[in-house]
């Protein structure tokens, strides 16, 4: 027994130093978050005005202008992606949680997990090979395909998790009332899980809405108004990228403003999801 001896003193000191280190690590992470968000806010707020949301981009050196076409374009491209990925993803999740057992379900789960880790740019290549090279030109639709490839696995896994939180006693109550399983799924499982489902979809939208990599060579970009899905379309992330790597100060300012809009959207969706998760009844 050497309690209180020299060895213990050193052990205690090491302990304090390491635990202080963990506190420092947490502080660094939180500081980085505020630094980045704060910096984007300060640099971007100048560029946010009505024109930013209603005007078309202007050439270098011409005052004013905005990113209206890119904002609308992002909504269209992400919206079309959601239309493709959400129904398929939710239905697949219904299968996995309500019926899925055995090898087939496990392999679907595994592939969805693995696809969730595929780099966004690879989804762009696949959409290029599937759509762009066959149609012979860049298009908003091909961009949506790329984003849908990214969204699908996220939606499947988050929806299945949500369906699993619906207590089995509710399914049994419904089945015992003589309600067939398919109606039980729609009327009880989907309805009970609807809030969580929406949260998961919002987070998936936030995730892909900020992606530029898969859109660079699918939706491409466009300086003009275009609402046609078979034509190149401007999107906020791609426009941000083009402005950021340009050598012009007034374009840099637009890039910061675009970054502020993106960050605002992502933060709002995440905070809304978090608040919803807290409000959910049960555990």
């Amino acid at each position: 027994m050497n309690g209180g001896g020299l060895g213990y003193g050193r052990r205690k000191l090491t302990g304090h130093v390491m635990m202080a280190g963990s506190l420092v690590a947490a502080c660094i992470a939180v500081a980085l978050l505020f630094w980045i968000i704060g910096y984007v806010f300060i640099k971007g707020i100048h560029g946010i005005n009505l024109d930013f949301f209603t005007e078309l981009p202007t050439p270098v050196g011409v005052e004013g202008g905005g990113l209206a076409n890119a904002i609308v374009g992002s909504i269209i491209v992400v919206g079309m992606a959601a239309l493709m990925a959400v129904p398929v993803g939710v239905a697949a999740a219904v299968y996995l949680s309500e019926y899925g057992r055995g090898l087939f379900a496990s392999s679907v789960r595994f592939v969805a997990d693995v696809l969730a880790g595929v780099p966004a740019i690879v989804a762009g290549i696949v959409a290029y090979a599937l759509v762009v090279s066959r149609m012979g030109r860049f298009s908003a639709f091909s961009g949506s395909v790329a984003l849908a490839i990214l969204m699908l696995p996220i939606i499947i896994r988050s929806s299945e998790e949500i369906f699993k939180t619906v207590p089995n006693t509710l399914r049994e109550a419904s089945l015992a009332l003589g309600i067939p399983r398919w109606r039980t799924v729609i009327k009880v499982v989907l309805r009970t899980a609807s809030g969580g489902l929406v949260t998961g979809i919002m987070l998936a939208v936030a995730r892909v809405g900020g992606e530029a990599a898969p859109l660079l060579f699918t939706a491409f970009s466009n300086s003009f108004w275009s609402l046609r899905p078979d034509q190149p379309m401007a999107t906020l992330p791609v426009q941000l990228f083009n402005y950021a790597i340009s050598p012009y100060d007034d374009w840099h300012e637009k890039a910061w403003a675009a970054a502020l809009v993106l960050i605002f959207m992502v933060l709002m969706l995440n905070i809304a999801a978090k608040m919803y998760a807290h409000r959910r009844p049960g555990r």
Partner: peptide
């Protein structure tokens, strides 16, 4: 807050980094 670091789009990190 740490999880929010993961939610910030890659582009914003790039802009900040640049």
């Amino acid at each position: 807050m740490v999880e929010l670091l993961a939610a910030i789009p890659s582009l914003v990190y790039g802009l900040w980094g640049l």
